[in-house]
Design a protein around this nucleic acid. Structure first.
Lengths: 215, 215
DNA sequence: GGCGATATTGGACCGATCGTCTCTTAAATT
DNA sequence: AATTTAAGAGACGATCGGTCCAATATCGCC
């Protein structure tokens, strides 16, 4: 409970704030990501998101047609956010290709620690919930994984050119293997509240990639 | 809606059925596993479980103190059930050690297909839900993974003795790597409704294990 | 063969959920 | 200035969640 609750808002269309143009939408997305990466879609209540974003319920349905539409927007948002994060590492010419992957892993570890291992990967979380989710989410989630896989595959191809992994390596399949396992590692990191599963997985993966081309 | 609903039960202690001694408990556990492996703990409603088990709501709290206690029982039950399944494969002397692992993978694929990829791994599902679960579940889930890891490690040690993997292999760590990645593979199999992620993960894992000892 | 102890259950309870609804006010438009 | 539109506020209803207790039957025992 706040000692001093925020002053009750006036009703009606608010005076136009300089900064907050489409700011309400932004606050909704941000708060939605926070809550959904912690709890998943089904458990996350709209009320909690709205409280956290300081957006009244009536406004929500002005911006999104339903919780489902909001969820779809969050998936896209998270996918784009994460893809940018991947590119930042994978396109970093200052490091050798495999070192870029390790840099991403280190970054992810720091991210998980920062939030006390409470926030996971939204795509993985929703993927596991898929049984109880709107069917339209499925294609979106699969596509997001596909996008990440393509980005990683490019990085692995660079590693192949650089001779860090065998020339016969199928980079697409290797990338698929990485993301599959990575989601499992994120899961266990959250469960054990430790980055060890993440680093261990990365270590094994890198050793495995360097050793031989997958069948 | 049933055309003919089952006759309304009388209240009070029912006449002792020959078969159902602690049978109600058994039905509860069975139905609970079905629902929880599909939906997870938070989303699964008691009502649905009770309907499916044909146990009246009032009875539930006679058998379990709370939904939490019931969940804990389900974790234990699932852990034991799965451990038995592992042993059946890992102790199968008719196959070479790594072939036993592959047999487990094939079995798991068949299991997922049989239920149209709706049922996942209870431990993985709850692990990802851990943020919104009773804190007491955490230790139980971790311990279950530890148990599976030990069983797999024994199988891998046998593979090492048999010369299927390098003599310097750290079987415990390799087993940890397997289960971490496996949970991710189960997730993606459910998402994509396909056994491909499972088989692909197994293929990469086996190739990786055979190629070199992990660092 | 009756009586207290015990097992089982029907249904009430209360709180939380999502989505809708109406009302209110400011900005935009003409 | 008048009208239309954008945006926000919060109450509401229907539903469903887990929990609990009074009611009722059987069992064990004397």
């Amino acid at each position: 409970m706040d000692a001093v609750s925020s002053p009750p808002r006036r009703r009606g269309r608010p005076p136009r704030q300089p900064d907050s143009l489409a700011d309400t939408r932004e606050r909704l997305l941000r708060a939605g990501l926070e809550v959904l990466t912690e709890k998943g879609f089904s458990v996350a209540g709209l009320d909690e998101i709205l409280r956290s974003a300081r957006v009244p319920k009536g406004s929500f349905y002005h911006y999104y047609a339903s919780k489902e539409a909001f969820g779809a927007a969050l998936i896209d948002r998270y996918g784009a956010y994460f893809a940018a994060r991947l590119d930042r590492h994978f396109d970093n010419a200052a490091l050798a290709p495999l070192a870029r992957l390790q840099a991403f892993v280190d970054d992810a570890c720091a991210g998980m620690r920062r939030f006390d291992f409470r926030r996971g990967c939204l795509i993985g979380k929703l993927g596991q919930e898929m049984n109880t989710l709107p069917e339209a989410f499925r294609a979106r989630l699969i596509a997001t994984f596909g996008d990440w896989q393509a980005r990683l595959a490019r990085c692995l191809a660079a590693a192949r050119e650089a001779g860090e992994i065998p020339p016969a390596t199928d980079c697409e399949r290797l990338a698929a293997f990485f993301w599959t396992g990575w989601e499992g590692a994120v899961l266990r990191a959250g469960l054990e509240r430790s980055t060890v599963p993440l680093q261990d997985f990365a270590t094994h993966f890198l050793a495995c990639a360097a050793a031989r081309a997958p069948a």
